[in-house]
Nucleic acid binder design. Structure first.
Lengths: 233, 233
DNA sequence: TAGTGGTCTAGACCACTTG
DNA sequence: AAGTGGTCTAGACCACTAA
């Protein structure tokens, strides 16, 4: 056993990752229990627990009480990526952010949203359409519904200068959300705003967010061709 | 102060999320320190630490020693999604998985990969092209390079029955990776295999993985139109 | 029923950062 | 210099589950 005597949970995670990568602990195998690992590395069980727990959360290990800890046989790995305000994303890329409000209406939503959000049949909510630009080039087209039944103060915002994206982040923090990625050929309307050929492949991001189970907003973002979203494993 | 007296780290996380959502702790504000929260909820500082640490990891809080813990002003939220073997993904959707090997060659890679992986100029590696199908309908087109300098045993696999995807998961576990999403119009070749109109918008997923800083494989997956990848916040 | 991980505690020391 | 979070420890009890 090669084992450092002084070790923290982070170093231990790295060591476990290496043992798995080197196949010293091959996929599907049972690894020593927390107590034994703690003994080997001269640290406490809490430290081992944190290291193994985090590796399990990322999908590399599978843990069961009594059965012990196994290297995942067919790992369902988890990848994470950051969602920031679009302005920040553009500015981080070193470009100048600008923003254009295309449309803002207080109207009845499509049936899908009406049912999903359990709105009354005559309830009107806010629909906002806008364009985000980086160095004056179209970056992403935003189409958003805001649940003004739950966030009535959004009706007071005109979204002329600050995007709905930004307003919501600051005024209606959400607790949970769901994002879906897909792709779609650019429609005539998309093409006009994004300044691309009709039919271009666009990356489509649809996001719904809730605050304590109350729906807040649902947004559809069409990114300009060439945009890449990066995630790490 | 409304506070439960018996509480675990998970309940505490939920409580903090609610206080943020309800704007009792608005964006940018300083929240009480760990000791104070522990006192309020009648638990130990360790428990508070775990709750707040995890919320900070997910981007909702910002923590600094001495400065304390703040509700993120412009939260850079983190979303996570699972990456499983394509076979599993198809089977979970209740479809029958099948697989077609299109091409397998031991050749010199493109310059980009040669440099990125620091290969010799005459090094040959493995290139595998294949199609994943769900209930006999094309699901995703896979184009993969495998670093056989580091994983020579891949040369012994013929990938006729088991996909390279699956073989690698079981034989060359990776420790880190990067994924990028983009979209692309279907080429003539893509269209042939995926059975779609040329020019259709395809979701493109490119993934590179490493095992202890050693590049293992780089894959480009083109999903059939209509495919959605879901992530949660 | 016994073994394993999951959580919690009380306390400690340290690292970092702001004033 | 002092206050805060970051980590670690030794120990405890509990929850789950395979045998």
């Amino acid at each position: 056993m090669t084992s450092a005597s002084i070790i923290g949970f982070a170093a231990l995670k790295e060591e476990v990752r290496q043992r798995i990568a080197s196949r010293e602990w091959p996929p599907g195998s049972l690894i020593p229990n927390e107590q034994e690992i703690a003994l080997e590395f001269g640290c406490s069980r809490s430290t081992v627990n944190r290291a193994l727990r985090e590796l399990a959360e990322s999908g590399l290990l599978e843990r069961k009480r009594k059965a012990g800890t196994r290297v995942a046989l067919t790992p369902v790995r988890k990848a994470t990526f950051s969602i920031s305000i679009i302005r920040q994303e553009i500015e981080r890329a070193g470009e100048k952010y600008s923003y254009l409000l295309i449309d803002r209406q207080h109207i009845k939503p499509p049936t899908l949203i009406q049912k999903l959000w359990r709105l009354g049949e005559s309830d009107k909510i806010l629909h906002v359409k806008s364009l985000h630009l980086g160095s004056s080039r179209p970056f992403a087209l935003e189409d958003r519904w805001i649940n003004t039944i739950e966030v009535p103060s959004a009706l007071d915002a005109d979204f002329e200068n600050d995007s709905a994206n930004e307003w919501l982040v600051k005024n209606a923090p959400f607790s949970h959300g769901e994002i879906s990625f897909s792709s779609q050929n650019s429609t005539a309307s998309d093409s006009k705003y994004l300044d691309v050929t009709e039919g271009s492949a666009l990356l489509l991001l649809e996001r719904s967010t809730w605050s304590n189970k109350i729906p807040i907003t649902s947004v559809r973002l069409c990114y300009r061709p060439g945009y890449r979203l990066i995630a790490t494993i």
